[in-house]
Design a protein around this nucleic acid. Structure first.
Length: 583
RNA sequence: GCGCCCUUAGCUCAGCGGAAUAGAGUGUCGGCCUCCGAAGCCGAAGGUCAGAGGUUCGAAUCCUCUAGGGCGCGCCA
């Protein structure tokens, strides 16, 4: 589409400065230099953009920085958007642009709203984002919510930058955790029959959802469960794992493997339905749901192991088959086939990732909880040994979330079953504030999610603050009647006060923020930008009226305010949040 | 014990491909509604950027060590 292919004007301002600098550096130095940066100075007195070129190149060219800055400055061609270039501090070049350049950029934004915040550098490359992927053995909790929000917003950002994105959820529905769920369901069900089973093991799933689900199963099941007869009593109740294994073996044998698995499967499916619903409530739709059981059934897991075998990276020890991952950066070797012949989770995960590679993505992103960090190396090692390009896989780790209420920690413990689910959180604070708060911290930073703060309508609740700015603008626009699109930058000329200029400088930064947030995989940058822009608007709002009598000034200000609303709305949209006209 | 991550204002956090006086919010104190939504704005106070070394013309930012905190170190997933 044509619109998507045009370079937007707003990102061109910075590009223009960058190209001046690059040319100047080229002229003096004969080559480009990676450490030369063009950035927006913190202090507005330092201009609209600044470069460190003279500082970086001083040593190389054996020239004092300020003198070099002067030489560089002479290389900058005078142009209509450039007001002046100053040398300041140790040797920075500060670029002051004409206010008219910003009028042009804002006009461009209003004339092409569909291109707002869009980039093309993704070039249509296919990216897979795998996130959430919580085990289907219980409801999503608040920690999963962070990965969910982060993953989905990152996916939206990638889409805005021209990538073709697919969202995926991996379902660990096989193995021991699933067995424990099956057992838990059976034991809860038995509690309501004439012959209850053994005491509910500590390490089984205690959550109410198991009991609730067990109660919904058809009565025909009870006849089947009767055949389980006497349950074994574990010799050592403290050996939680062993105790569970015995009970699982008993149930599987008594019911038959097929019936046991069918029951387990129905349990995981039931939970998955809830997970799907919870994600949908947060505005998240997955393109693919990949089942571990399916990878096993179709022999992809064993084929994955064979690849390691062919690479000569497997060996036998203690009856198991090991992968020599320590030779590829891991801290120790890992088992892929247990002594009982079944593949480990790790083996299945290798198969899963080979499956991703087979599907032909240019890039693969995994969003994992920080507790999986020890797992990164071994997966990379396995992929490398399998002969695929491990650098195409990018694993992003999310730090933990703790809940607070008025700054007080809400204690949570999975074992005691008193944790707050993602669903409860969304019901309490609303899915939009939840999404936003989840991305207000850097992913490598621990997040304190304050429930009361998330509900409050005040300055420190970023979502309301931003939405309030949108609503205020809409109220002004409504009062003004129809506001057309400016035909030329000249129509904004009357908006030239320092406050208005500062606002435009902020506004024009939006595409740069989108690019940075996407490249750095940090939606947090978007969140904090929107807060800053909303803040700049609120300050402006209190400083001078939009709806003044002078028609030229009034019109210019209306355009400006409309552009702010456009960017806020666009940014909120990328975060999956709507920009209300009233609130 | 080993490995990864974190430590910035009373509190919650930005800034961390090095560079010009370290920024927000909140809390505290003081102002602003006859005027487009005060769910807002303006101002003041508050920091030896955990500590110690090092690299550099220049370090909150890079390296090393120390101290605190989180997480991981299963033939669990």
């Amino acid at each position: 589409m044509q619109v998507r292919c045009r370079e937007n004007m707003t990102s061109m301002l910075k590009r223009q400065v960058e190209s001046w600098v690059a040319q100047a550096v080229q002229a003096l130095c004969g080559s480009a230099h990676a450490a030369v940066l063009v950035e927006r100075p913190k202090n507005p007195a330092h201009g609209d953009y600044a470069t460190n070129a003279a500082l970086v190149l001083a040593a190389k060219l054996r020239c004092p920085p300020r003198e070099l800055a002067e030489r560089l400055r002479l290389q900058i061609p005078p142009g209509d958007i450039l007001e002046r270039v100053e040398i300041a501090g140790p040797g920075f070049l500060n670029f002051h642009l004409q206010t008219a350049a910003f009028h042009a950029a804002v006009t461009d934004m209003l004339q092409h709203p569909e291109g707002c915040g869009q980039h093309q550098f993704g070039q249509g490359r296919k990216v897979l984002v795998e996130f959430v992927s919580a085990n289907p053995t219980g409801p999503l909790h608040v920690g999963h919510g962070r990965g969910a929000a982060h993953g989905d917003i990152l996916a939206r950002l990638l889409e805005a930058c021209g990538y073709q994105v697919e969202r995926e959820y991996y379902i660990n529905d096989s193995g021991r955790q699933a067995d424990i769920l099956g057992l838990s369901i059976i034991l809860r069900r038995l509690e309501h029959t004439a012959c209850p089973g053994p005491a509910f093991p500590r390490a089984a799933y205690h959550g109410d959802y198991v009991r609730e689900y067990a109660a919904t199963l058809p009565t025909a099941l009870d006849g089947l469960l009767d055949t389980l007869g006497d349950w074994p009593t574990p010799p050592d109740p403290d050996a939680a794992d062993h105790c569970l294994d015995m009970l699982i073996a008993h149930a599987r044998q008594g019911l038959g493997a097929t019936a046991f698995e069918r029951l387990t499967r129905s349990g995981t499916e039931h939970i998955l339905q809830d997970i799907r619903a919870d994600l949908a409530e947060m505005g998240i739709t997955m393109d693919h749901w990949v089942y571990e059981s399916e990878l096993r059934r179709t022999a992809q897991v064993s084929r994955g192991i064979e690849r390691l075998e062919q690479a000569g990276q497997l060996y036998h020890k203690d009856g198991a088959v090991w992968f020599r991952s320590s030779a590829l950066g891991d801290t120790k070797d890992r088992v892929v086939l247990r002594d009982n012949g079944t593949p480990t989770y790790f083996a299945a995960d290798l198969a899963y990732h080979l499956h991703k590679y087979q599907r032909g993505y240019d890039h693969i992103i995994n969003i994992w909880g920080a507790d999986h960090h020890g797992y990164v190396r071994r997966l990379q090692a396995a992929l490398q040994a399998s002969g695929v390009d491990a650098t195409r896989l990018e694993i992003q780790l999310m730090q933990f979330v703790s809940l607070c209420r008025n700054r007080q920690r809400v204690p949570m413990s999975t074992r005691q079953g008193n944790y707050i689910t993602l669903r409860e959180l969304c019901r309490e604070v609303g899915p939009a504030p939840a999404r936003f708060i989840y991305i207000t911290r850097n992913s490598d930073q621990h997040l304190d999610f304050d429930l009361e703060l998330a509900k409050s309508g005040s300055r420190d609740n970023a979502v309301y603050y931003i939405q309030y700015a949108c609503a205020r603008i809409c109220s002004i626009l409504h009062k003004a009647g129809a506001v057309p699109i400016p035909a030329s930058p000249a129509e904004l000329q009357a908006a030239d006060s320092p406050a208005e200029r500062a606002l435009m400088v902020e506004l024009v930064q939006y595409p740069e923020i989108i690019e940075a947030a996407t490249r750095q995989r940090e939606p947090q940058l978007l969140a904090s930008y929107l807060q800053t822009l909303a803040g700049a608007f609120h300050a402006y709002y209190n400083l001078q009226s939009v709806l003044v009598d002078d028609p030229a000034v009034r019109r210019a200000r209306l355009y400006l305010v409309q552009a702010i609303r456009q960017v806020l709305g666009n940014g909120l949209g990328l975060a999956g949040i709507d920009a209300p006209e009233r609130m």
